[in-house]
Amino acid sequence: MQIIEGAGTWAPPAAGAVNDWVEQLRTPDLSVGTYCIPAGGIDDQSPHTEDEIYVVTAGRARIVTPGGTAEVGPGAVIFVPAGEEHRFDEVTEDLSLLVVFGPAYGSRAPGR
């Protein structure tokens, strides 16, 4: 057993960064991290090679995918399959997301 300290907790991006990503746990089969976007910020991520679950722990935004859009806030749980374009926009309150990748983030990327 392991308690993952700080997972899902808001952290402002470093100076000059548009958002903040921290991986807090990594095993071959999954990884857990926190993704934060400040209010009014930009989500500049690209599709991932792994399935992904987001849990909104704080803030409000809209998630946009080819299949549609949805308003999200604390408690929302979002599944994004590997390879699907997605981004958060209209971030109206500092957004903090607990992120779970299966398998671990980047493990299916070419060249790994």
Rank of each mutant, 00 (worst) to 15 (best):
P74T: 13
T49G: 03
D51K: 04
S31P: 10
V32K: 07
A104Q: 07
I78C: 06
A15N: 06
F101S: 04
A76E: 04
G73T: 12
V56W: 00
V80F: 05
G33S: 02
V100C: 09
I53D: 01
P74H: 11
A104P: 01
G102D: 15
G106H: 03
E50H: 12
M1Q: 14
A76T: 06
T92P: 07
P28Q: 09
E71L: 12
A11G: 10
S46F: 15
D44Q: 12
G41W: 00
E23N: 06
M1H: 14
P74M: 07
E90A: 15
A76S: 10
D44S: 12
G6F: 03
I53A: 09
A15L: 05
R60C: 12
P28V: 02
A7R: 07
V22N: 07
P13V: 00
F101A: 02
G41A: 04
R87L: 10
A17Q: 14
H48V: 11
T65A: 00
G68H: 03
E52C: 11
G102C: 15
E84L: 08
A17F: 13
A61C: 05
G68S: 03
V18G: 09
G102E: 15
V91C: 04
W10D: 02
P66G: 05
F88P: 00
W21P: 01
G106A: 03
